[in-house]
Design a protein around this nucleic acid. Structure first.
Lengths: 261, 261
DNA sequence: AAGTGGTCTAGACCACGCG
DNA sequence: GCGTGGTCTAGACCACTTC
């Protein structure tokens, strides 16, 4: 077992630094130990049973504290192995005013990019897809879903749907979806994007390697051609701890600003 | 107790519709009951002890399922009273390309708006505030924090900091912060906004009346005067289930996207 | 006073990783 | 095979709301 984590709970004063339920006191105690660098990123935490013994709490209570930290991403629990302090994660910034691709974002940061294909093919559209893409009843759609990975860390899940009229053969999409659309002369020129937050479900959390219930950014994007037709309908889920969306806002109706300029 | 929820767990087949851990099976079972309208919004769920008795599970296991639903906001737990299906929540849209105020957003939807003041006064700046606002070492800041409420539902927490050079008397801020800044000739003309998702901590979750760990949108906004000086530094936390940010994107540099990997 | 959710315990079995 | 996290149980006390 690791030595530095040993002294964390023996002192007996870990209780007094907080108040309220025991599991919360323990939780904030561990949290502070991580923040102050008393335990280093990547290091293992003592096992739940050990912490229980050291603190005099039951394992259930210890577990509750650790689980909450895991849900927040400060800590990673590995069955059969142990619990480890999560590696530090610097947020990626993405502009909200220009349409950039994932590959672009990452390349700018000098990170290695990988994609794991999850689905790529022609399908019958769902009712939602039919509506959003404005399809005729006989139209089919191409779906390309992939897990986006940067430096071996899964960052986002992308689920794109395109009418086969604009993308007849999804297998030709190898790297950038936009690159392929461009080759076909169907590159979008504008898009509407909706951003909201939600707790990740089991499936998505597992893919992104975070705890179930961790916060994620849901992004729904609809892209338009110059002609105004809808090309692409993409639902993405980003890790909340890995992404930061940046937008520049301008004042709506402001007479003073106009005059001053 | 309510009658319609009675039959939910007696059948004995609630287990077979799912697989995996019992608490997950129960969780998805209740979830479906809500989705399909088998239990109505606002109705009470049977008590944890009752569900335990009906399903043959222990209360701990039942509790785990219910708690997860509470964290997701599908259900509200009221100590001493019971657990209730949460009222349906329609999302509010907010544009990301124009700077609008909360009051504006809500007024457009025809909702009643309230604010609960949490902090309003002059303070010594934190290191972060000093840096972001570009303060001299002797400068003081005005802080105005409030809980934003629409139709009696808490929607967001707003914590704004302004240098006293631009807002000498925060007590004069009654409704819109921007309105007051405008009166003083210090209305911002542009802003940079960062959006990310995170699980809500105890304090914020309590204020927003959602479960601890529910997903929230963190928004940090820095507003600029025409002169380029920083006026305002605001950190807001929005309920993930209540807000939807909308952005319109334009294609930046087309060629870069193709080349980027 | 009775019932509710909130917390906590002690003990158990499982599947899995690792040496 | 041993230790880990993952799940589950039965029973307990508390603070609170409701009647």
């Amino acid at each position: 077992m690791n030595r530095q984590a040993q002294g964390l709970f023996i002192s007996g004063d870990w209780k007094r630094e907080s108040h309220g339920p025991l599991y919360l006191q323990l939780q904030t105690h561990i949290e502070k130990a991580i923040e102050t660098g008393r335990i280093l990123h990547g290091d293992p935490l003592p096992s739940e049973r050990e912490i229980a013994a050291m603190t005099g709490l039951s394992r259930v209570t210890v577990r509750r504290a650790v689980q909450e930290l895991a849900r927040r991403g400060l800590v990673v629990q590995k069955p059969g192995s142990g619990t480890f302090i999560a590696p530090e994660m610097q947020k990626v910034e993405q502009s909200l005013s220009t349409l950039t691709s994932f590959s672009e974002d990452m390349a700018r940061r000098g990170n290695s990019v990988q994609s794991r294909w999850m689905e790529k093919g022609i399908f019958a559209p769902s009712p939602e897809e039919t509506m959003v893409l404005g399809l005729a009843s006989t139209d089919m759609v191409a779906r390309v879903s992939r897990l986006r990975i940067a430096d071996n860390v899964p960052m986002a899940i992308e689920r794109a749907t395109i009418s086969t009229r604009f993308l007849p053969d999804p297998d030709l999409v190898t790297d950038s979806l936009y690159a392929q659309l461009d080759r076909l002369g169907n590159k979008p020129v504008r898009a509407i994007q909706r951003i909201s937050a939600a707790n990740l479900g089991r499936t998505d959390a597992d893919l992104l390697e975070v705890g179930e219930g961790a916060a994620g950014l849901n992004i729904v994007r609809v892209s338009y051609l110059q002609s105004g037709k809808v090309v692409e309908f993409t639902r993405s889920v980003y890790r909340g701890d890995a992404y930061d969306f940046v937008a520049e806002l301008k004042i709506g109706n402001n007479d003073d600003a106009d005059k001053a300029q």
